[in-house]
Simulated assay, not measured.
Amino acid sequence: MSIGNSPDGNPPEDERPFEDDRAAEQPSIGRALRQARVEAGLTVDDVSNATRVRIAIVHSIEQDDFAPCGGDVYARGHIRTLARAVHIDPAPLLARYDAEHGGRPAPTPAAPLFEAERIRPERRGPNWTAAMVAAIVAVIGFVGFTVVKGGDSGSDAKTQVAEGSTPTTSKPAPKPTVTKPADPKPSDSAIAAAPQDKVTVQVSAPDGRSWISAKDHNGRLLFDGLLERGQSKTFQDQEKIDLVLGDAGAIQLHVNGKEIKDEFQPGQVERLTYTKGDPEVG
């Protein structure tokens, strides 16, 4: 009779070897990111400066606390950004996050009304420059005709005619003031005719909603909030516009009258800088 075996010859339950717990062997998302950062010789400050993710959020993610991210979309974007900064593949981390938090968020279909609005023909205002040129030419012609007609009256008469015509040349001057309407929120046509001495950025959300932040060249906050589906915001500055897109895949950009065709992924956090002239991504 053998000791420690059950009647059927198998070892008792208490003496069976424990099964390998593969999940326990794999480090958590935060621990994997922290371990990769240490192996890369980077500090939390280094990662924050490289990704522009706040230091507090980096610390929270490394402790597997995703609440400060503000939602699953932003958490996935931060995980992807941090993984790339410490030179590891973000895909396994994102898959694990989705498995632990109810799956990946479904993309929202594009809004057809926005597509129709985007192709509307541009409306043009009156051409005040041409009107000014025509008025000046008419005045110069009238003065010349008057001077020639009064040539027989001597130099005094010519002087009087010239002096009398002086007020008429100044009459068209107030006209350009009519062409200065204040438009704090330029429309699509204003974006298409964006002034070259400024940078004009239009941010639209045709495919869903996204948190965005915009600052001018002085660091002054122009907007910080949620852009709902179908909404758009337009920002202008003399030098540059700094943008942070919480879900770049849901955003469409027009910069200085040109559409930005970068293929941003859903849930991807992007930090962009645009200046005057051709669009340049910072």
Rank of each mutant, 00 (worst) to 15 (best):
P7G: 03
P11H: 04
E13Q: 13
E13M: 11
D14N: 11
D21A: 10
A23R: 11
E25A: 11
A32D: 13
L33R: 00
R34Q: 15
V38I: 14
E39T: 09
A40C: 10
T43F: 06
V47H: 03
V53A: 10
A56P: 03
D64T: 06
A67V: 10
C69V: 01
G71V: 05
D72K: 15
L82I: 10
D89H: 04
Y97D: 08
Y97H: 14
Y97S: 11
H101M: 02
G102Y: 04
G103E: 10
A110R: 12
F114S: 14
P121S: 05
R124T: 13
T129S: 05
A130E: 12
A131Q: 06
M132T: 03
V133M: 07
A135I: 06
I140Y: 08
F142Q: 14
V148L: 12
K149E: 14
G151W: 15
Q160W: 10
A162N: 09
G164Y: 12
P172Y: 15
K175W: 05
P176F: 08
P184A: 06
K185S: 06
I191G: 06
V199R: 02
T200C: 08
Q202H: 09
P206L: 08
G208W: 00
S210Y: 14
S210G: 09
S213L: 08
G219T: 13
R220Y: 09
L222H: 07
Q231E: 15
D237K: 05
D237A: 07
E239G: 04
L245H: 02
D247R: 02
I251F: 01
G257L: 03
I260Q: 15
D262R: 13
Q268R: 07
V269H: 02
T273H: 06
T273S: 10
T275E: 09
